[in-house]
Design a protein around this nucleic acid. Structure first.
Lengths: 183, 183
DNA sequence: TATTGTTATACTCTATAACTATA
DNA sequence: TATAGTTATAGAGTATAACAATA
C-alpha cells in the first residue's frame, strides 16, 4: 500500500549526482564589486525582531544544508531522527506535536526515513491505530554523523559569541518558543 | 506583457473570503488533555542553535501572519515594502540582494505588489535594463498599518524579556547574520 | 562579456479538509 | 464520538539554468 512517493524516490536518486557545488559559503554578500555601490537604508525594519530572526535563521538553514551535504538529511528529518533516537517507540502524532509538524506532513517525512532504511514503523499492539517509531542501526549512524558535522559548523558560526552569551541567547530563544499553555 | 501570474490573482481573490478563522493563537500546545500524556526527552537536539532558532522563528512567523491578517502582507512582501519606502528608486536586483531574495523570486513578489497598487515599477532612464521601485500612497498606508500591528504583537511576544535582554538579543542575532565579507 | 529582469521549473516546508480503521 | 494515520491539495519560500535586452 501507500503509493510510491515519487518525490522521495527522486530525492534518493538525485542524491547520487550531487558532488561538491558549494563547500560552506553561507555568506550574504552585499557588495557588487570592490566597493559597496550604494548605501542602503534599512529604517525601522532592522528593529523588528521578526526580521532579525528570519535573517539569522536563513544563515543557520544554509549552514545546516552545507554541513550535512551528501548525508541525505534535511533539518526536519534530522530533528525527527534525533527525537526518535531519544524516545524509541514514540508514535507519529506525538512526534509531530513535539516538533510542531502537522500530522499530514509527518507521513511523507516518515516514509522517506523508512525508505532510506533509517526508521522502522511497527504496529503498536496496544493501540492498533498507532505506529511506533524506532531507529535502525543505519539511522543511528547517520544521526551521529549528522550531529558531529552540525556541531562543528555551529561552533564556527557562533565563534564570535562567548560561552556566557551563548547561554543567554539559548535561554531567550527558549523563552520565546516555549509552549504558552494557558487555559 | 508578463503573463498574468495566476498565483497572485488567486491570492487576491482568496483574500476576500478570509473572515476570522483564528484570531491570534500562536501557541504550541504540547498537552493532549489536562495532563501531559508522556514525557518526551529531547536529548542533544535542544542544545543545537539551529533547532532553537527554527522554533523561535516558527513562533514569530505565525505571530506575524496573525498580526497582519486581512492586510494582504506576507513577511517577504512586508520587508520589501519597507525597504522600498526607505530607498525610493532602488532596483529589483539590489533590493533582492539586500533582503537575500533570489533575483527570479523577486519578479512575482514585485508583480504582486504592483497588482495590489502598492508599488510602481519605472524604467530607469540612466540604465534601460533596470526598473526603479517606488511606493504608492496606498503602499505607504499599508506599510504604516503593518508596522503598527507588528510592533504591537512583537512587544507582547517579547514581554518576558527586559529591555537590556532585548538589546543583547538583537546584537547577537545581527552578529550572526551580518554579511561575512571575505575576499 | 557582464548585468537586469525574466521564464520555467523543482524542491522544501506549511496548512486544511476529508477519508479509513480503530478506539 | 474521538483519535492515529493517511490522501489530496494548495500556498509560501527557496534555488538553479537559460534567455532577451541592454550595458
Amino acid at each position: 500500500m501507500a503509493k510510491p512517493p515519487s518525490k522521495v524516490r527522486n530525492r534518493l536518486r538525485r542524491e547520487r549526482a550531487i558532488s561538491e557545488q558549494h563547500t560552506s559559503k553561507a555568506q550574504v554578500s552585499i557588495r557588487d564589486g570592490l566597493q559597496t555601490k550604494e548605501t542602503v537604508s534599512f529604517g525601522p525594519l532592522e528593529d523588528l525582531f521578526g526580521y532579525q530572526l528570519r535573517r539569522a535563521w536563513t544563515v543557520l538553514r544554509k549552514d545546516f544544508t552545507a554541513s550535512v551535504e551528501g548525508l541525505g538529511l534535511r533539518h526536519l528529518s534530522f530533528s525527527l531522527l534525533s527525537l526518535i533516537s531519544d524516545n524509541p517507540g514514540i508514535n507519529q502524532g506525538r512526534a509531530g506535536k513535539v516538533l510542531d509538524i502537522q500530522r499530514p506532513n509527518m507521513v511523507a517525512l516518515i516514509t522517506e526515513l523508512t525508505d532510506r532504511g533509517w526508521v522502522e514503523r511497527r504496529k503498536d499492539p496496544e493501540d492498533r491505530r498507532a505506529l511506533a517509531l524506532f531507529l535502525t542501526d543505519d539511522g543511528q549512524r547517520i544521526l551521529t554523523e549528522g550531529f558531529a558535522r552540525i556541531e562543528q559548523h555551529e561552533s564556527l558560526l557562533l565563534a564570535s559569541l562567548s560561552e556566557a552569551e551563548k547561554a543567554v541567547l539559548f535561554d531567550m530563544l527558549k523563552r520565546i518558543s516555549a509552549p504558552r499553555i494557558e487555559s
